[in-house]
């Protein structure tokens, strides 16, 4: 009897709780799913999603993600959110092909889908890229050229020869360097496998082969760490320039010592905000127009083109090239 009373009371409490929950549910629920939780890159994106949630009290926004770099785990999280029928889904896919099916189901149910770093995703309303890859490669190379005084031998590193974006970056860089007659590209496109130790060994070998080398342009996130260490140990800071993709926190020491001249990246914080702003526009049935301003840093003039599927492909201008003087503004 007591049990029954208790049970009824609990059920009532649950019901009232649920109705309170439902009331909260009146607010649209906006979910962001990242590749891996707990790594600095996506912790930084979380900062952006929280900022968006705080600035947009009319919605409930949160970020979620698997603990491992595992496409199957990410799939399960997305499936779960679709089952809960959130209103919008912003996803940074681990492997776009793996989640095509569930994203299609989400869109069929009327959930707004926005993706990032997946310009080949078919089932999405909009995919947003931080910048145009050729623009980025050119910008890195321009920074390198000004560091080298537009003179001397330089070389390039890619994560692997199969990495499409890296190849686009260094190709655009090589094209840019042709403007300067004094710059010579030697032993281009070394593979680093994103392994700082491998990159270190290769950088040393290149420096031995070309004692007059004056510059490196690198692509994968760990490359600047490996090449920077080779430059620092050889005591070549200030004599050899290094410009490449890298994150501010891991690069800080080498930027300070002068072994890294500059790093390029995009800020995942603003990418997180931009994804959710786009999702909110779509939720409110507002149009996405070419050249529109999302009112997010780096996404003030976004190009909008037809994507590979039914949705659109959007490209911002959110690249950041930071050196010793300003990297502290982006510590992540």
């Amino acid at each position: 009897m007591i049990h029954k009373v208790l049970f009824t009371a609990m059920a009532a409490a649950c019901l009232s709780g649920a109705s309170a929950g439902l009331q909260a549910q009146e607010k649209p629920v906006m979910a962001t799913v990242v590749k891996i939780s707990g790594i600095p890159w996506f912790d930084r994106m979380h900062v952006g999603v929280k900022e968006f949630a705080a600035a947009t009290p009319s919605v409930t926004a949160f970020q979620n993600g698997p603990s491992n770099a595992d496409a199957a785990q990410q799939l399960r999280i997305v499936e779960d959110l679709v089952a809960r029928k959130v209103n919008t889904l912003a996803v940074v896919p681990m492997d776009p092909a793996v989640i095509e099916g569930v994203l299609k189901r989400a869109m069929d149910r009327g959930i707004v889908v926005v993706t990032h770093e997946a310009d080949n995703q078919k089932n999405t309303n909009a995919n947003i890229e931080a910048f145009d890859n050729a623009d980025y490669g050119r910008a890195l190379n321009e920074k390198l050229a000004s560091c080298m005084g537009k003179q001397g031998k330089w070389t390039s590193f890619v994560g692997s020869l199969g990495s499409r974006t890296h190849i686009q970056w260094v190709d655009a860089g090589a094209e840019n360097a042709k403007k300067y007659a004094g710059m010579t590209l030697v032993d281009a496109k070394n593979e680093s496998f994103d392994d700082a130790n491998r990159t270190y060994e290769k950088a040393k070998e290149i420096l031995r082969k070309h004692p007059d080398l004056r510059g490196f342009q690198s692509s994968a996130g760990n490359d600047v760490i490996g090449i920077g260490r080779a430059i620092e140990e050889a005591g070549l800071q200030g004599k050899v320039c290094l410009v490449g993709t890298g994150l501010p926190n891991p690069s800080a020491k080498l930027l300070e010592s002068g072994a890294i001249s500059a790093i390029g990246f995009w800020d995942p914080k603003y990418a997180g905000i931009a994804m959710n702003k786009i999702a909110k526009l779509l939720l409110e049935k507002k149009p996405l127009t070419d050249g529109m301003n999302l009112e997010v840093k780096g996404y003030e003039k976004v190009s909008v083109k037809k994507g590979p599927g039914a949705g659109v492909l959007m490209v911002g201008n959110a690249m950041v090239i930071a050196d010793k003087s300003n990297y502290k503004e982006y510590l992540f």
Binding site: L161, D187, K189, E191, E201, E205, I206, K209
Partner: peptide
């Protein structure tokens, strides 16, 4: 560690 030295292209 000698392939770059020997001039073997990355590919």
């Amino acid at each position: 560690n000698v392939l770059i030295m020997a001039g073997v292209p990355s590919t």
